[in-house]
Design a protein around this nucleic acid. Sequence first.
DNA 1: GTCTATAACGGGATAGAC
DNA 2: GTCTATCCCGTTATAGAC
Lengths: 193, 193
Amino acid sequence: MYSEDMSTRTRLVNATQELLWERGYAATSPKDILQRAGAGQGSMYHHFAGKQDLASAALEESAAMMRADVDILLTGEGSPLDRVIAYLERQRDSLRGCRMGRMTYDADVLATPELLRPVAETLQWVVATVTTVISRGIEEHEFPEGTDAHQLASMVVATVQGGYVLARAQQDPAAFDAAVDGAAGLLRSWSRR
Amino acid sequence: MYSEDMSTRTRLVNATQELLWERGYAATSPKDILQRAGAGQGSMYHHFAGKQDLASAALEESAAMMRADVDILLTGEGSPLDRVIAYLERQRDSLRGCRMGRMTYDADVLATPELLRPVAETLQWVVATVTTVISRGIEEHEFPEGTDAHQLASMVVATVQGGYVLARAQQDPAAFDAAVDGAAGLLRSWSRR
DNA sequence: GTCTATAACGGGATAGAC
DNA sequence: GTCTATCCCGTTATAGAC
């Protein structure tokens, strides 16, 4: 339940963002959303065309938040290698999984272009941004010449996404940490070649 | 619809395995299963206590299949490095994702110990098996001394699991290939240190 | 063992009052 | 703008005939 100074529309979007992260699209009902937002049926159908429309707005908002979070790590302090390792190591709440990545296993999302688009674009953006940082590292001779920046970036992002899967399966964040630590170790070694 | 020489029970389990892979647990209804198996309501409730019981049997069967598939790659021909790379590179149908990994984003599975158990055990087994292969590689001096086999194995399995996520988001197997090629490249480099 | 009929419940959307 | 009442449909399970 949100504070009164947020508009009903905002409370609806926020509640939907949370539920999409926790349970996914198909498993989230309008009733769940309304209860968490402290709103009635009418409000939702006044502000949005329906569940899908609201979910679309919520996903776009979550996508923007994820980009902002990742951007801070990748454009922050330190050398290119430091920043890639910051992206790997500073993920929080690994048991919650990825707001965007989890949607790829929701059949309704895959089948609905408006819902898949923010997911596809955001993950694509993360890979592209890591690729840019690694390319910079190659220019600065922190990574060897001939490094395939896109392959390396794909591996880095996949390690994070897959680390979430392993941690959720074991219900243990240590499984995530082992994966990203393994990737960070290899990257450090690669940069010293 | 399956051939007549399979028992109804077997057809139910097989149909459920397929649907769990394609859509997950919550999104699969008994009706879907019965239609694909070519059976009626009565058959299912005769052989199984309900949807959850049938899904449990199907997941156990899929888990065994996945272990068999992975085992062939990891205990097959070649040096430890070759076998780890075979595991990375010989995944098929990357757009389908992982039978077990996908279940970690299904809230009902997480909340049901009988359903989560095969998922957790199988992914744990894969990481442990890759760890063993890498440890062997360290003994044989194919990997440097001081290599953390468990971290490296976690990274390898996470890359595969995350590669599925990236490929499904883009609806393009190339995203999977880039991730596993990146991991394979780093591993080769690491083994030559 | 397998079938159909039915029931109880919840999801998602609409209607119309306030 | 927000509320409640209502509707239609699909999911899951049960009952009982064959």
